[in-house]
Design a binder for these strands. Structure first.
Lengths: 138, 138
DNA sequence: AATAGTTTGCAACTTTGTTGCAAATGTTTT
DNA sequence: AAAACATTTGCAACAAAGTTGCAAACTATT
């Protein structure tokens, strides 16, 4: 498992450091999206705030994770599907934010339907963010 | 026109003040979404930052404007359709953000398609945010 | 026009995110 | 496996974004 994580880092030309390994592990363990603050607390503040910011930035650039737009404009990150690579994100799936527990789910298998935009608008990326009540909070 | 604006404020039990009138006018004049910074510059810094924050908050609470989730997690606001009232937002329409000029359009007339969520997930609000190239930047 | 209620602006503060740089860590070479 | 090189980390200092309390200014009400 640990070596899996290292593999991912190497494949993306990143040195395998303690913080990167740990943070990437967190994403793999969690089945929901994580905010900067989640990572700070789950790592028990072992790493500098700056390191976490930079690690997340790097992961986004490499296509390892992606950001999720939220209605309250907090910044969330989640693992990308395999098809994502540097500069070419393929995250056209649906996200669900639970109004009760706040958990954000990445519904990878549910794809975004075609949207008929007005003449002249060419879409490049489409995000769907649904919010409501999740399966654990009913 | 000015009296229209005052009407809206009164209808929402808000005192008609210069800043509120001016800010609400800005939204009515603009056909795109506005960020806090846009409002600051378009009012030529006549109002305190805090006043703008509070005005936007109040307008959101009253259902006069709504926030738009963005992929880069900046905070954007746009006028609500008539059907929105306090505590009951009805913004299930599509937003489009132009990657070139940064303009955000509220595509009121394009409705969000049904999304089949997994069992147990009950949606309450659904946002669709498309980004790409807008009609003016082709 | 006086009073009561609301809103504004200021100051101070918190939270969130960024940058430069030296020290520490990771990688490669011999 | 140690030296040399490259990358990453943590610190400090800063910048930007957002919040709160409170007195002064403004709206609304009588």
């Amino acid at each position: 498992m640990k070596s899996d994580i290292a593999e991912i880092l190497k494949r993306n030309q990143l040195s395998v450091t303690e913080s990167r390994t740990k943070i990437l592990e967190l994403f793999h363990e969690s089945n929901s999206a994580l905010a900067h603050a989640d990572i700070e607390s789950k790592t028990e503040e072992s790493y500098d705030r700056v390191t976490i910011y930079r690690t997340l930035q790097t992961f986004v650039e490499k296509g390892i994770i992606h950001t999720i737009p939220t209605a309250d404009n907090s910044v969330l990150y989640a693992l990308c599907k395999d098809e994502c690579t540097q500069g070419k994100h393929n995250d056209n799936h649906v996200h669900f934010i639970c109004d009760v527990c706040g958990t954000t789910y990445c519904l990878d298998h549910i794809s975004v339907p075609e949207i008929n935009l007005p003449k002249g608008f060419t879409p490049h990326r489409t995000d769907v963010v649904a919010s409501g009540i999740c399966k654990n909070c009913r």
